[in-house]
């Protein structure tokens, strides 16, 4: 059995940013013969493999391509060249609450978000009580989420995402919000996933402490390339050394 769940093979991601968003800017530029597209390389020929059950941290300065990697794994973006292959159900915890609709109630949003993450209605029916319990906002669950505080928003979104029974969990900086108690609860849940061994977690964070204590392997990205891949404390050491040298 092949246990590789995520495989990047010579992946390059270039963005061709349109410099002009409207015709008003575009047409004069076209006439003047200016460049209408700006190239930008986010990832440059990157290869790595992630095995089932691993907990991977991705670190690196802003703009080094961390989020791009998550988006490529999530299938939201496609690589310019190279291939990205994934196996299993992906649950992105990237910027929670993207699928929430403010006018709908918490309960309605659970169904909506569940569907966005690919759940069937009966799966949600089965899990809805657990989701509400985990979020600890039962008394507000039948109110429109526009009345929620941002903490409540995030609790609900996190609860939904972890009840998808993910095989690949993508976590992007989310644990920066929410109170300490809930953060601890989230980490506990993620530790459970880690122990379960069939869940692969990819974790992007600027909090090196979190990465070091939580991950079993760390990929250090800089200048659009992988500079180190392996032991967490060593990766962090190299990263810190690089930052100081600047």
């Amino acid at each position: 059995m092949n246990d590789t769940v995520i495989k990047f093979k010579n992946v390059t991601k270039k963005f061709s940013l349109l410099s002009q968003k409207t015709f008003k800017e575009f047409i004069p530029a076209l006439i003047k013969g200016e460049e209408t597209k700006k190239g930008f390389t986010a990832l440059d020929d990157i290869s790595f493999e992630i095995q089932k059950g691993e907990t991977i941290g991705i670190i690196g300065p802003n703009g080094s391509g961390k989020s791009t990697i998550l988006k490529l794994i999530a299938g939201v973006m496609s690589p310019t060249t190279g291939t990205v292959t994934t196996q299993g159900k992906i649950s992105p915890l990237i910027e929670l609450g993207a699928g929430m609709h403010p006018e709908l109630t918490g309960r309605e949003n659970i169904y909506l978000n569940g569907a966005i993450l690919g759940l069937k209605r009966k799966d949600i029916d089965k899990n809805i009580e657990n989701i509400i319990d985990f979020s600890e906002i039962r008394e507000f669950i039948n109110q429109p989420v526009k009345h929620y505080s941002s903490g409540m928003y995030m609790r609900l979104a996190f609860s939904i995402a972890i009840h998808v029974e993910p095989e690949i969990l993508l976590v992007d900086e989310i644990l920066a919000v929410g109170d300490t108690d809930f953060q601890a609860k989230c980490f506990k849940k993620m530790e459970e996933f880690k122990a379960a061994e069939n869940v692969t977690t990819v974790f992007v964070s600027h909090s090196l402490g979190q990465v070091e204590s939580f991950c079993t392997r760390v990929i250090y990205l800089n200048h659009h390339q992988i500079l180190f891949d392996g032991d967490p404390s060593k990766a962090i050491q190299i990263y810190l050394a690089d930052t100081e040298n600047k």
Partner: peptide
């Protein structure tokens, strides 16, 4: 394959529009 999402998105559209 994604009919559940289509259903949810459609009802979101209908429910949300006139709620206020």
């Amino acid at each position: 394959k994604w009919r559940e999402l289509l259903w949810q998105m459609t009802s979101r559209e209908i429910k949300a529009r006139y709620k206020q």
